[in-house]
Computed example of a mutant assay.
Amino acid sequence: MKPLTPNLNKWSDKTSEHRARMLISCPDQPGIVATVSKFLHQHEANIVQSDQYTMDPEGGMFFIRIEFDLPNLESKLESLEKDFANVADEFQMNWRISLAHKKQKLAIFVSKEDHCLLELLWQWQAGDLYADIEMVVSNHSDMRELVESFGIPYYHIPVTADKKAEAEAKHLEVTAGKVDTIILARYMQIISPKFLQFFKNRMINIHHSFLPAFVGGKPYTQAFNRGVKIIGATAHYVTEELDGGPIIEQDVQRVSHRDSVHELKRIGRHIERIVLARAVSWHVEDRILVHENKTVVFN
């Protein structure tokens, strides 16, 4: 069988080799936008999109995402970053510049549920997800044939309570320095703090409830027992606090007392796959800024 390949034609304008993205967060004060715009103009860059948000004009945090075009960008990037460092120091900025055409490398971790994985694979194959899926890692072997039909390497690394540290060492071996971001697509294992330190704000989980409600295991059973009228799903960055990291995206659907736990799960699977795919797409397009335990998402 010929491996499937992504269709990237639709990205030709948005990911030009001349396009870059600048993300900035800093204390709000007058002159930030004017100074950054003037800087880019002086360096012969053309701003094509700009989004900004302030938590509070009087002493709050300011966030901005700018897309700009600059001919011969890669050859000028080092000097551009060096010159901008002076501006950043003046305004106490946390900032970065990324190349729009440079695709992030992803690893997808899964267990036995396939719906979130399939959504990511379909969106990648259709060209809706601009990234390279470098590998799929699983504690079960169930989805090897499916994943390899897409031409993507599959690593089966069993996880047991007595060999969890050994399994994580293998996870680190296959991912460290080889992928930019890890996606937990219903990977039903708790990630250790030691592993997390290598992927701070670069590991995305889908939790099958509308957090902060029903954290931990069996959230649909918890929801059913409470007789909820709305169920949802939450995509968030993974932190040491279980299901407590910065939230990226959420969605909900109305249900009723007539819906069984099985029906809640069926409805929930659809929400989960869409919410996770949105979050991953926004992440790889540099649309998310993290501040403390919150996110600002320019979508």
Rank of each mutant, 00 (worst) to 15 (best):
I133E: 06
V280E: 01
A88L: 07
D13L: 11
L121Q: 04
L106S: 07
M135K: 02
D259A: 09
V33N: 11
P57Q: 08
S138I: 05
T175N: 04
V48Q: 12
I206G: 11
F39T: 10
I108A: 08
I64W: 15
H207Q: 12
D28S: 07
V255F: 11
D114A: 05
F63E: 08
D251T: 01
L172S: 11
L276M: 01
I108K: 10
E148Y: 11
T160H: 09
L184R: 06
L172H: 11
V297M: 00
L106F: 13
K265H: 08
M61I: 04
V284G: 15
S209H: 02
I247G: 04
N293I: 00
M55F: 10
H257L: 14
V255M: 13
K14W: 07
N86D: 10
L264M: 15
R287Q: 03
I267E: 09
K103M: 12
Q250N: 11
E119Q: 12
H236D: 06
I191K: 00
K194Y: 09
I204E: 06
Q125C: 03
K218R: 15
H115E: 03
I32P: 07
K164S: 13
G127I: 02
T15K: 06
S138P: 14
Y187Q: 13
V33Y: 11
D56H: 14
L77D: 00
N293K: 14
E78Y: 15
S260F: 01
R266C: 05
F210V: 01
M203S: 09
I190T: 11
K200D: 00
Q189I: 02
V297D: 01
A85S: 13
E166C: 08
G127A: 00
I206L: 12
K105Y: 06
